[in-house]
Simulated scan of single mutants.
Amino acid sequence: MTAKHPLHYHFGEVTELFHYIYEVCETAGIYIDWSGTAQTVQLYRSEESFLSGERYIGAIQYEGSNQFQKRWPSTVSLRFRRANLSFILKYCLEQIEDYRKDTNKEPFINPNAESIAFKFTSLTDETKQVISKIKEVLCIANYV
């Protein structure tokens, strides 16, 4: 059985959250690619950067379950790979601390972790505000 695109799953509120983050990234000018995985889409600075072979800058991913038939995911992560970010993008993303969970153990905000990770469990006004801050950073960094 081949994996479905992550946008085609229906897990209730966590699906709304995934879709919301996906749409926000698109409107910020981020190019989103799906490489056949069930849980993840990769983020690129632009379609041109993707086509030219640049490395992905981040990902949107369902987390909390690898077996969707048994248990739905409980979290959506929006993470950015530090090594693939421009200085300005990395610096600005580091300034956003709400919902950060760069590692799964304390301290959650860890400048030595591979990724700057934001983890969300529901779509609330508070999460929308944080996602909006991330969008602003993405727009500035891409000059959108």
Rank of each mutant, 00 (worst) to 15 (best):
H19E: 03
A117K: 10
I21V: 07
E48L: 15
Y31R: 06
E63F: 12
A113D: 02
P73Y: 02
T37S: 14
V137H: 06
S122M: 02
G58Q: 04
E48C: 11
M1N: 03
E114D: 11
E63I: 08
D125C: 05
S122A: 07
E48I: 13
Y22M: 06
G36R: 02
I60T: 09
Y9E: 10
E13A: 11
T2A: 14
S86A: 07
S65W: 06
Y91D: 09
G64V: 08
L89Q: 14
Q61I: 07
K90T: 09
T15Q: 05
I32W: 04
K128S: 01
I88T: 14
S115K: 15
I21C: 01
I30D: 04
I21G: 02
G29V: 08
R55D: 04
E23L: 11
Y99N: 12
S46T: 13
Y56E: 13
R82Y: 00
P73H: 10
I60V: 14
S46L: 05
I88M: 12
R55T: 09
A83M: 13
T75I: 13
Y143N: 14
E126W: 13
N104R: 15
T121W: 09
A3I: 04
Y44Q: 00
T124F: 10
L138R: 10
G58S: 04
Y143S: 14
H8Q: 14
L93A: 01
Q129A: 12
A3N: 11
L7S: 09
E97A: 12
L123M: 04
N84Y: 06
T37E: 09
I96F: 05
G36L: 00
P73Q: 08
I21W: 01
T37P: 03
K101S: 15
I116K: 08
P6D: 06
A141H: 08
I32H: 03
H5I: 06
D102Q: 03
K4M: 09
E16M: 08
W34V: 08
V14G: 02
A38F: 08
I116L: 10
Y44A: 00
G64S: 07
R79F: 10
I134H: 02
S77V: 09
L43T: 10
G12W: 05
E97D: 09
F120P: 00
E97R: 15
R79L: 13
L93N: 03
M1T: 04
F68V: 06
R82W: 01
L85D: 04
